[in-house]
Write a protein that binds this DNA or RNA. Structure first.
Lengths: 226, 226
DNA sequence: TGACTTTTATAAAATCTTTATACCTGCCTG
DNA sequence: CAGGCAGGTATAAAGATTTTATAAAAGTCA
């Protein structure tokens, strides 16, 4: 169940079928969307590890879909296109796509570019590594936390918060930033939520919750993980 | 002089010349190597921001050069090749190249792939915002200050003030200017606030607060950071 | 129901502002 | 020259205010 999930957004059923077969026989899990709208929905709900986006879609111009995805989706997007027009390539790459591939493509090259994109992302994200801080041990992918080798049970939100702090270890994260990341846009003023969850995390993770050594509060600004 | 430096490794003088012209006319600085050995040396000595590597080199197989570079060079490498053989592409990408481009290439696409690779790298890198002054080390983005490698806890206003002084290091900032920047319009006469905070910063940061070496007072005018 | 999230309430802590007082330097004057 | 005054500066410490911690109640969702 820990194979990577690829979302295919393409209007041509044959291409989808082909891609699905190729990808699944190489160990990826696959979900498909037949147009941009569906693709954006699926990307949001399933959080795939990589998106293959055909830019010649019927409903929205593929470029619009790309722009929408880039606004919030942080993992790699590989753009496909029948047109081998230079302008298209330049556009896609400049707006932030991870890679570009002209159709018809060779499946070997496609797979290589997928591997490359995923590898680059992982090396950035490095979420496959377990992070250790003295008595704490946090595994970002299996979403578990240990304190002195004992598993600590954390709720979804608690882990999300911990995860965010850990990913930016050492830096001060503002209340606003944390609230936006965990609760989403529009919650930036609900500082109290954050206080409650920080208290809960400290109670579960800190040896002495009254004198935290990991989750440090930066009064007036935010919190920092050490 | 802060434009990005690109290293071209290619044995064909015409290609080098072409690439040099294209890149320089797009604001990059360029250095060139005619074979793998020279390329590795130049990469080590000049630390270019990106390498364009032609994989069909005479002295070593280009793949060996690539392997050597990947072992220590962390910035993007884009591989060029006359052969459009799928195996080549797959190899290059799998071993860790950032991107692959078949010759003959269109300059627009090349430039787009360069921009894309550099952008990806920059978004990962974000290393230095750290400023060092003998025993002090101030990180403007993570909002931390260290004295002799020990983190010093600063309040919001304290850090804002320090940050302002550091940003204008060496210059004398008037009381008025500082007050306007930190406390806002209308506080320009509250010189006392400033005195209090300067004293606090000195107590926390100066080895001998009575004879400050970093936060210098310019009597009748303001303060200066050294 | 039970696990989790959102609100509410209140105590505690940290920070900021203000006041008070001492300091230092140069200059004027007896 | 000593003493005192003036302008600017340094520092401690007392309020005032803001921010944070925490428990616990209320709401939500499966």
């Amino acid at each position: 169940m820990n194979s990577e999930l690829v979302l295919i957004i393409d209007d041509e059923p044959q291409i989808r079928k082909l891609l699905k077969i190729v990808l699944e026989s190489n160990g990826y899990r696959v979900i498909q969307a037949k147009d941009g709208k569906e693709g954006i929905l699926l990307a949001g709900s399933h959080q795939p590890d990589l998106i293959l986006l055909d830019i010649g879609l019927p409903d929205m111009s593929g470029h619009q879909v790309l722009k929408n995805l880039l606004a919030w989706y942080t993992k790699p997007i590989i753009v496909l296109s029948v047109q081998n027009g230079e302008e298209d390539i330049v556009n896609a790459l400049d707006s932030g796509a991870s890679d570009y591939l002209a159709k018809p493509f060779r499946t070997g090259e496609l797979l290589a570019r997928i591997r490359s994109a995923l590898k680059r992302y992982r090396s950035v994200d490095q979420s496959d590594s377990v992070v250790v801080f003295s008595d704490l041990e946090i595994d970002l992918i299996s979403r578990t936390a240990k304190k002195n080798d004992t598993i600590v049970k954390l709720t979804q939100t608690e882990f999300n918060l911990l995860s965010l702090l850990v990913k930016h270890e050492g830096k001060v994260l503002t209340h606003q930033f944390i609230l936006k990341e965990i609760w989403g846009m529009g919650y930036q003023t609900e500082t109290q939520y954050l206080r409650v969850y920080v208290a809960q995390l400290r109670k579960k993770l800190e040896t002495d919750p009254n004198h935290p050594i990991h989750i440090i509060t930066e009064s007036g600004v935010g919190y920092r993980f050490c």
